[in-house]
Simulated scan of single mutants.
Amino acid sequence: MPRYDYRCRACGLTYELNRPMSAANDPATCPDGHTDSTKLLSTVAVATGASAPSTGGGGCCGGGCCA
Rank of each mutant, 00 (worst) to 15 (best):
M1N: 15
M1H: 13
M1R: 14
P2N: 08
P2T: 13
P2A: 07
R3Y: 10
R3G: 13
R3P: 01
Y4H: 11
D5V: 10
D5L: 13
Y6W: 13
R7M: 03
R7P: 05
R9I: 13
R9H: 14
A10I: 14
A10H: 15
C11P: 11
G12L: 05
G12W: 12
G12E: 13
T14M: 02
T14R: 08
T14Y: 03
P20Q: 12
M21P: 10
M21V: 11
S22Q: 15
S22F: 11
A23M: 11
A24R: 13
N25T: 08
D26E: 14
D26G: 01
P27N: 11
P27Q: 10
P27W: 04
P27E: 11
T29F: 01
T29Q: 06
T29K: 05
C30Q: 03
P31G: 04
P31L: 02
P31D: 05
P31N: 07
D32T: 10
G33R: 08
H34E: 07
D36T: 12
S37P: 05
T38I: 07
T38C: 00
K39A: 09
L40D: 08
L41S: 15
L41R: 15
L41H: 15
S42I: 11
S42Q: 15
S42Y: 08
T43F: 12
T43Y: 13
V44A: 11
A45F: 12
A45C: 05
A47P: 04
G49M: 06
G49L: 03
G49S: 07
A50Q: 06
S51C: 01
S51G: 03
A52G: 01
A52F: 01
A52L: 03
P53A: 06
S54K: 12
S54W: 15
T55G: 01
T55Y: 04
G56K: 14
G57P: 08
G57W: 06
G58V: 03
G58E: 01
G58P: 06
G59I: 00
G59M: 00
C60F: 01
C61V: 01
C61H: 10
G62A: 00
G63H: 05
G63K: 06
G64V: 00
G64P: 03
C65G: 01
C65F: 03
C65E: 02
C66E: 08
A67F: 12
A67I: 13
A67N: 09
